[in-house]
Design a protein around this nucleic acid. Structure first.
Lengths: 232, 232
DNA sequence: ACATTGAGTTAACCTAAAGCTAACATGGAT
DNA sequence: ATCCATGTTAGCTTTAGGTTAACTCAATGT
């Protein structure tokens, strides 16, 4: 059911530690037809955000466990939340938190106390902005007999549709962004695994091997001492 | 900037047997500044395409006289339409026609019913992609009949592509940064091997020899007691 | 001319990097 | 909890690349 409805209306994640705020703001947003999720602190928010991938996140600044600033910072580093609009909820006069907010990548801020009508129109305008910024670009890449559909996380290879495990897909995805270019191991780790994660030295190889198994040996060339590249 | 200009000039051929579709999609594209041509079947499309050489062709799959698949296949075999982007229009859920589409060389597909905004942004992105293909972001150095591609870690010498082992490549890379300049042995060791590593006195020579073997003796001049230089 | 010195050449040797495989770990679904 | 798919690791093998040593050759200076 939700599946069917999902692109009908935007998804909004509302984060505040005061139940009253969640109640009243949530009510207003639902009234406008938005699909509303709520969280009571930054940590929870982050978890729900990753899961629900909302279009807009309204973040209170002052919260226990993890405050809005920190949460926002983390969200901005989360690839899945790439196009997501984030706005802060801040008490009037808390100028410093507004500045800190923009600093960590927020798109806007809303001052408390919130007037419902102001809130709703702000939300509308923010979501409109998102649409202009993120024109649904085609995420399909065609390379000979390989088609990579980044939206659907699937590929078509020699007329056969198949889905790859996440890491394999991301690795392939990276290599094919610039066919021919040699990606250094370091580069690959950065993009596919992220800066913080440390994995063993043979991990990339194993995934390359799996890709070779599935997509043909000769598409993936090793450049010893440097890295790998996708060709043809 | 140039993007605007090129987009404004882009030519789009729209092919569908339903006049309504031609009407509404055409309207939206014209609104965006595209120059729009239309055809009502594959045969007509092919004729117009050859004549007008559009940058983008939007092809309905199901059409009388000649369907989109067949038309696309023919277009791909037409040299004049070499850089042309082709996208299919297909009813949602017709996955098979999508695969067939890629099979005959389509670049993307758009599902019906089409939302104008989606359509327009997709068109933009497709045309953008086309432009991005042309100006290859290059780390490429050309020196007479030698081309050094630092991205791909490969060289082209006398029209022949070859990959060099890492040290050789880096040595060559260094020498060619300043053709004619004599690099002292010490300098070479610093750059190619790094400050800490200590290697024997004949190591550089050996690599120079290998380069001479592969790229011709006379490109690498020895300056006795000093070092080496690359000359065209 | 001969000695001296730096460079060229070759092949043997060494080593770091990648290939491979199987085992183990993890996390999501049922 | 159990299962399955994905992801990571460890450890071994293989290979390509890199270095060295020993010898030869060429140039230079006395």
């Amino acid at each position: 059911m939700t599946e069917e409805m999902k692109d009908a209306k935007a998804r909004v994640l509302l984060v505040d530690d005061e139940p009253d705020i969640l109640e009243i703001v949530g009510y207003n947003l639902k009234n406008e037809g938005y699909q509303v999720f709520t969280a009571e602190n930054g940590e929870e928010a982050l978890k729900i955000a990753k899961k629900k991938k909302p279009d807009l996140i309204i973040l209170d600044v002052m919260m226990p466990v993890m405050d809005g600033i920190e949460a926002c910072e983390k969200m901005r580093k989360t690839p899945e939340l790439d196009g997501t609009v984030i706005t802060f909820l801040t008490a009037r006069g808390e100028d410093y938190s507004m500045i800190a907010g923009f600093d960590v990548g927020a798109d806007d801020y809303i001052t408390k106390p919130v007037k419902p009508r102001v809130l709703v129109s702000k939300v509308k305008s923010l979501l409109r902005r998102r649409e202009n910024v993120t024109p649904e670009a085609s995420n399909i890449l065609k390379l000979g007999d390989l088609v990579i559909d980044r939206d659907q996380y699937k590929i078509i290879y020699k007329k056969e549709e198949m889905i790859l495990p996440r890491k394999e897909f991301e690795l392939l995805s990276l290599l094919t962004t610039k066919p021919g270019k040699v990606f250094k191991r370091e580069e690959i780790l950065d993009v596919v695994w992220g800066n913080e994660v440390i994995v063993g030295g043979r991990t990339i190889d194993v995934h390359i091997r799996k890709l070779r198994e599935k997509l043909g040996d000769d598409s993936f060339k090793t450049v010893k001492g440097v890295g790998y590249k996708y060709v043809k």
